[in-house]
Design a protein around this nucleic acid. Sequence first.
DNA 1: CAAGATTGAAATCTCAATCTTT
DNA 2: AAAGATTGAGATTTCAATCTTG
Lengths: 163, 163
Amino acid sequence: LSSQVLSTQPSTALDVWVRLLRSHAAITRAFNRDLIAQHGLTVNDYEVLLLLSRAEDCRMRRVDLAEQVLLTASGITRLLDGLQRAGFVEKGTCASDARVTYAVLTEAGHKKVAEASESHLEAVRTLFEERCTSEELDTLAELLGRLPGAGGADPEACTVPQR
Amino acid sequence: LSSQVLSTQPSTALDVWVRLLRSHAAITRAFNRDLIAQHGLTVNDYEVLLLLSRAEDCRMRRVDLAEQVLLTASGITRLLDGLQRAGFVEKGTCASDARVTYAVLTEAGHKKVAEASESHLEAVRTLFEERCTSEELDTLAELLGRLPGAGGADPEACTVPQR
DNA sequence: CAAGATTGAAATCTCAATCTTT
DNA sequence: AAAGATTGAGATTTCAATCTTG
């Protein structure tokens, strides 16, 4: 019925893409379950709190936060709504440009990232280091870094600064 | 304020995880936008149609489909609801076990995967092959394959069979 | 008009509960 | 009781439209 166009040889690219989809789904689901159960945070919540905790003065513009977490402008607004209601984040204004709103980590927010990091960072390390050697992880990081979405990724600074 | 627990050295594992998150978000968003604009399908819709087109008699149990795409039981029900309304999939019954329902690809469904594959498989190949050599893609596939969610992944058979 | 931020509406997915069949 | 499938309720996210400020 339909043409020969589809009879391409097994494509490694497609295989990579399917595996990326599957591993992301599986890992995200597991981490989400644990983070929500133990700390009431989603993976994205945690990621945002972690970024804030590493930022200058624990504050970031909402636009920049959105770009880092790969959420839309409205996505970040809604995520921050939740973190504000929980008391982990506050709004801050910008003196030089009244359009921009900052997201500022509160004291409670700091405590929360610290708590959550204690179990979560360990879980992340375990999951990956159980399956790959240190060299393999370097390779994986390098290759993933070439894919879209890598812009602005900060290879250093993957720790939570203490106050 | 909070302890030293968090002052761990920059972790490659965390870096890999963040990059996996970001690349997945960026690529999924791009592919979703294109697939929806051009064919009215989400990435998951397409993935399900592709699996069905490769399956024996173009039919699969809903449970198995869910496992392959990493959706919950209810997730697959709802996704298939949409594909059924669009006429790409039909329900099939099982003679030997009245509990199971099959998802069966229709003629229209077959045409749809073929159409969508024409542009989408090319897009997938381009995206990955522009950034990685063939050997690097093999490495990437192998390493991603060790992560959770790889169970049941079929390394071969990544082509669309023609009728 | 651009950029930053927000809101309403809609889509997708999960969890918990339920129903049917084994 | 366990497996397959579905439903209602809720969470997360996106798109389009809107508002404010530069």
